[in-house]
Amino acid sequence: MSSEFGLRDWLLSEEPSSRRQAALSSWYNGWLRFRSNTLAMVGLCVLILIIFAAIFAPVLATHDQFAQDLGQRLLRPGVDGHLFGTDGLGRDIYSRVLYGARISLYIVLLVAMVAPLLGLIVGTVAGYAGGWVDIILMRITDIFLAFPRLILALAFVAALGAGIENAVLAISLTAWPPYARIARAETLTIRNSDYIHAIRLQGAGPMRIVTRHIWPLCISSLVVRVTLDMAGIILTAAGLGFLGLGAQPPSPEWGAMISDGRAYILDSWWVATIPGLAIFSISLAFNLLGDGLRDVLDPKDNGS
């Protein structure tokens, strides 16, 4: 008991005595602030639940995700031990949704690594360098922004061939421009601040300034933006799957599952609705999480 209080005090100390304590205590303070936001906590819980489901899909699944049984096709939820019913080929929807979570999370994570990083590099370099570097980089960004996202992704997938990896690549390539814009706008306000001047006066080069001083300040707003965009990324992936350009059958990608269910939507609503609900809950979870993170990470009300 007392050691627990000791840890809390240690984390909340106004006078940290080591680098590690300072870093941990700033994380802990952020966590405390995040925790006080109920909706964000709900989002986090839902997300943890989905991640949990994805990891333990083999244990939790009641059937083989690919096993077809035409005699058992289009069973209502709850009938014959099929929790969410079966689809047009008699596959268990519950098991498929569980495995589908793996695919969705895989897509989201890959996009979330590639697109913001690309945007961050382009945006901060453009913002810090200024001049013609800025003009060239931002016009390229504008060209990408001018295309409708799904159409551009379609074009990429059509060129690269259908499949999850290519879908991820296509989504990433269409998703980075907004991040570049945000990162550039942030950089423009940061680069003329006194603390950047101060480090320039210590002889720091542009590389160091951008990566060590500007990135840490841009990352918070990008992280928030990414979590808010996650929903859109999942939907684009689902859209590509729906159009047959993302995950290929029989893979249980949620968008592809909805696409399959389209044929039976009037008679057997559950085939399309269950994966739809899964997409809805993961999107909502990411949105709520993003809102909470914005409150925690916003440098404006950080501290003082």
């Binding site: 300072a22 603390y195 001047h197 480090i199 300040l217 440098p299 501290g303």
Partner: peptide, 8 residues
């Protein structure tokens, strides 16, 4: 304004 807000 002259100290980086995220640096100790």
């Amino acid at each position: 304004a002259s100290l980086h807000p995220r640096h100790t």
